[in-house]
Structures are given as C-alpha cells and as structure tokens.
C-alpha cells in the first residue's frame, strides 16, 4: 500500500519536474516550480488587514478558506500598479502555508532543464540580500526567466517572527 503511494508520489514529482509556471512582473519574466502551485484564480475582492507589511495586500476568500495574498510587484520593491483584468492570483502551497501571489500576467508553463539553469551572478551583489529569493536564471527561447524560490519569497523576517509567536501560543 505504502509503496504504491510512494511510487505515485514519485511519478507525480517526475511529471512535474522541470515544469515552471512563468509570469510577468514589470518587464521581467519569473518562474516558479509548478509543484508549489495549487491553482490560478482571477483577481478577487481583497479584504485589507491593517498594520501589516505593504506587500501583504490582505485576505481573500478562496471557497471558504481564508488565505492571505501578497503583491509580488510590491514584494520585489517595485511601484505598485493598478490591477487589470489580466491580473491573476497564483495560489501556492509552501510547507502547508497557502498564500496567493498577485502577478500582473500569467505567461505559460515552461519546461526548463536543470542544465539550462545558471545561478544568478553574484558580482557586486553580495549586499543585496533582498534578491536571495531568485535562485537561478533560465533561458527559454529568447527570454531570460528568473526562477524564484517561493519559500524564500514568502519567508522573511516577518514569518520568522510569526512562527515564534505561534510557538509561544502553543
């Protein structure tokens, strides 16, 4: 029984391996491993929550489940833009934390081989810790895509503080 499940899981992972959900923020394209992606939904009415980081836009109601959404553009320290009908929310699941990412435009699902991924050049960027969530660059066709580690994207000092708070509560 267990072996079966494991095998299925492995299969599942195999088919997802190298698949990336790509989206546009600003003029750059970004990619996120498809294994994190739960679904993509249209822009929803967002309930703002006071006194939180500016990139946390608030809460949405995903079929009865209340999840937070963050604006990736703001998270990348770009100026916010108006949401359009192309604006989408990518719902990702990172270690049981379900979070929505607001992106300007969904591009496509790309298959990127490991060999096509190069680490971002570190020249003169040692100080720019803010970019650590980009873990690789990938060339597909004629565009460069920045691959994002969602764990690092959502996990910053806030989350750590959060976790501590939760631990205390428990």
């Amino acid at each position: 029984m267990r072996n079966m499940a494991e095998r299925e899981e492995m299969l599942d992972e195999d088919t997802q391996k190298g698949q990336f959900m790509t989206f546009q923020v600003g003029k750059e394209y970004f990619g996120i491993s498809i294994s994190y992606v739960n679904e993509i939904i249209m822009m929803q009415p967002i309930t703002m929550v006071p006194e939180v980081k500016d990139y946390i836009k608030g809460l949405i109601n995903l079929r009865g489940k209340i999840i937070p959404v963050i604006d990736v553009r703001v998270r990348f320290k770009m100026d916010p833009v108006e949401y359009t009908d192309r604006t989408c929310i990518i719902v990702i699941n990172v270690k049981t934390t379900v979070i929505g990412l607001i992106v300007e435009k969904i591009a496509e699902v790309d298959t990127i081989q490991d060999s096509d991924i190069v680490p971002p050049p570190s020249l003169g960027r040692k100080d720019s810790e803010q970019n650590k969530y980009v873990y690789g660059l990938a060339r597909t066709g004629d565009t460069m895509k920045l691959l994002i580690d969602p764990e690092k994207l959502i996990k910053d000092e806030d989350l750590e503080v959060m976790e501590e708070m939760q631990d205390e509560e428990e």
């Binding site: 009415p45 929550v49 946390i56 949405i60 109601n61 209340i66 934390t97 979070i99 503080v161 939760q166």
Partner: peptide, 27 residues
Amino acid sequence: VKPIPSYVKKVKGISGCTQLGDGSIAL
C-alpha cells in the same frame, strides 16, 4: 470565527476574521 492566517502577523485589535453572507471577509 476563523483565525487570521498565520502568515499575516498578529494585529493588535483584531482577533480573527469571518466570511459574510456575500462571501466577503470581515475582520
């Protein structure tokens, strides 16, 4: 009553959230 998702840090003065009849969220 539903808890605020743990990703959003605790806000003083807000204890949780809920869905209203129209599906929108109230704090």
